[in-house]
């Protein structure tokens, strides 16, 4: 009835390759998050403070990022741009796709964060002679970051897990590498089981680090 024989040895043999691929996963996710935070912040500020075409672009970005499958967004940067003769490397496709997606989600988090900081904080800052820039960077944004800190952590986890879509555009991050070895050895279950454990450990490490950082950053 149950005649599947587990073979773990090939998996163990390629573990160093898998861990190296895991680093690549982490790298692309971290980069996408850094870019996503910067762009998301800009998108949120544009949506809150501007009118006209820039605002329209920002809104469209957020709408597309949040309301279409992440896989399609990756395909757009892969096959979509490819159709117009712009060929990105698999790494760039995943980085661009993840950044696009993260920026869209983070923009909404930031928007909520900005709306949660009372306007009177800006008035008080300006009344002390601060410029609008100083009021935003010294008073408003630090408070916004606390409000959106946990959503950002969630998004970071999501970015790591979502990067596994990279294997569908030929990117050999953790999932792509796993797929490569699995198809070579036909030990599909074993490979993906071990990879799942690696993902789990990465996510747990991120959550732990985030909690640690929070206690240092937010003393109030």
């Amino acid at each position: 009835m149950f005649d599947y024989n587990f073979h773990w040895r090939p998996v163990m043999k390629s573990l160093p390759d898998l861990l190296e691929a895991a680093l690549l996963t982490l790298q692309v996710a971290v980069l996408a998050m850094i870019l996503g935070i910067i762009i998301g912040l800009c998108l949120a500020l544009i949506r809150l403070n501007m009118r006209g075409p820039l605002r329209w672009i920002a809104s469209t970005w957020v709408e597309l990022a949040r309301n279409t499958p992440a896989l399609f967004q990756l395909f757009f940067f892969g096959f979509g741009l490819g159709a117009f003769g712009l060929h990105l490397s698999p790494y760039m496709i995943v980085l661009a796709g993840l950044t696009f997606n993260c920026a869209g989600y983070l923009a909404e988090n930031f928007r909520g964060g900005f709306q949660a900081v009372p306007d009177t904080q800006i008035r008080a800052s300006r009344s002390l002679g601060m410029t609008a820039w100083q009021a935003y960077t010294r008073i408003v944004i630090p408070q916004v970051f606390r409000i959106v800190y946990h959503p950002i952590t969630n998004q970071m986890v999501w970015a790591v897990l979502m990067s596994s879509l990279g294997m569908l555009v030929g990117f050999r991050e953790l999932s792509g590498e796993t797929q490569f070895f699995a198809s070579r050895t036909f030990r599909i279950f074993e490979y993906f089981a071990v990879t799942a454990v690696i993902y789990y450990v990465i996510v747990k490490l991120i959550l732990g680090a985030s909690r640690l950082l929070a206690t240092r950053l937010f003393r109030y």
Binding site: P118, R123, S125, R126, S127, P142, Y220
Partner: peptide
């Protein structure tokens, strides 16, 4: 610059919480 001459205290005290 001018506002530096004009200290202001608000009804809602608006301390910076962070």
């Amino acid at each position: 610059k001018l506002r530096q001459q004009l200290g202001m205290v608000f009804q809602q005290w608006n301390s910076f919480p962070h």
